[in-house]
Design a protein around this nucleic acid. Structure first.
Lengths: 160, 160
DNA sequence: ATTTCTGCAAACGATTTGCACAGGG
DNA sequence: CCCTGTGCAAATCGTTTGCAGAAAT
C-alpha cells in the first residue's frame, strides 16, 4: 500500500473517531497501523499479534472492541467464508467493489473486480424494489492447475 | 413444496446415507422431514424444535451431527449472513442457483435467481483459471417501500 | 455380534463484558 | 475534573465431543 493512501486511512479514521466523540489512543493507533499496513486478510487474533508488534500494550479486548469501529467506518470489511472465525479485509479502500474466489483445492483466496458484476447486481437489486447498499460475491472453485498437476503455485499458502 | 419433490428428497437422502455406510434412524428421518418440510430458512436450534414436533426423542446433538450430512448431500445449504448463528436454506433443490438479498431496513431475506449472474460468475471464474463449484451472492440493500413509508409490507417479519 | 447412533452433559473456542484503574479532552 | 478507554479475567453462547447405553445391519 502506498504511503499516501495509508496516511489518508489514518486521516479518515481520525476524523471518523472525532465525529463520533471517540478518543484517539495509542492502542487504537497501533491497531489502525497494523490493520492497514498490509494487503493480506487477517483474523482478530492475527491482528492482535500484528498490533502488539507495534505497541506491546494492546490487549485482545481492545482489538475486539476496535474492529467494529473500523468496520463501521467503511475502511475495513468483515468477511465470512463459513469458518468459525471472522476474516478482515483491508483492501476495500483501493478496490471498493472487489469480490472473492476461494479455491477448494489450494485454499487460497483470490480477489477480483468486475464492472459487469457490479452493474448486474445494481440492476437486480433495483428490479426487486431495493436500493443497493453492500454486495458480496463469494465463488468457491477448483484450481485448474491443481487439477492437472496435483498441486499448484498457490498450494503452499495455507488457508486464511 | 410438492409431495413429489419431498419424496424425492427422502429418496436421494436415503441413497446418500446408504452410499456412505450411514444408518437410517428414526431421528434422522424426523430431522429430514423437518428440514425439507418448509421453504423457510432456519437455524440449528429452530430445526431442533421442528424435529421434536415430529419425534420428541430428537436431541440437540443429533441435529448438530446430522446437519453437516445434509449439507454434504447437496440438498441443504448453509448460509452465513454475518450473525453468530448459521442459517440453513432448504430451497436449493427447487432453485439450485438462487441468491439472497438481505434488507437492511425490514431485515427480510429475499431470494432471487438470475441467469445472467450465473453466466457472469462462470465467465469470471474460468478467466481466473478455475472451475466453478459453488457461488454465493449476498446483497444488502435498503427497502424502497420502507424508505418512503417508514415501514414496509415485510417489516412485520423478524430477521432470520 | 458388530458397529454405528444416540442422549446427556461437559468441553470448547471465538467473542463479549463487568470491573477498577489509566489516560485523553 | 470528567468521561471514555483499557487490561484482565470471567462470562457467554453456538457448536462439538467423550462416554455408556440403544438401535440398526
Amino acid at each position: 500500500m502506498s504511503t499516501v493512501s495509508r496516511d489518508s486511512v489514518r486521516e479518515v479514521l481520525h476524523a471518523f473517531l472525532a465525529g463520533k466523540g471517540l478518543r484517539k489512543t495509542s492502542q487504537r493507533d497501533a491497531i489502525i497501523e497494523a490493520a492497514f499496513g498490509t494487503n493480506e486478510h487477517y483474523t482478530a487474533e492475527e491482528l492482535l499479534t500484528m498490533s502488539r508488534s507495534i505497541d506491546t500494550s494492546v490487549s485482545r479486548a481492545t482489538v475486539y472492541r476496535t474492529l467494529p469501529i473500523l468496520v463501521e467506518s467503511g475502511l475495513l470489511r468483515e468477511l465470512d467464508f463459513g469458518g468459525d472465525t471472522k476474516i478482515y479485509d483491508p483492501n476495500f479502500l483501493e478496490h471498493p467493489t472487489h469480490n472473492h474466489l476461494v479455491c477448494v483445492d489450494c485454499k487460497k483466496i483470490v480477489e477480483f473486480e468486475d464492472p459487469n458484476m457490479e452493474l448486474l447486481e445494481n440492476c437486480i437489486t433495483r428490479r426487486l424494489g431495493f436500493t443497493p447498499a453492500n454486495k458480496r460475491v463469494t465463488i468457491e472453485a477448483h484450481c485448474d492447475e491443481f487439477q492437472s498437476l496435483g498441486t499448484c503455485s498457490r498450494a503452499a499458502n495455507t488457508a486464511k
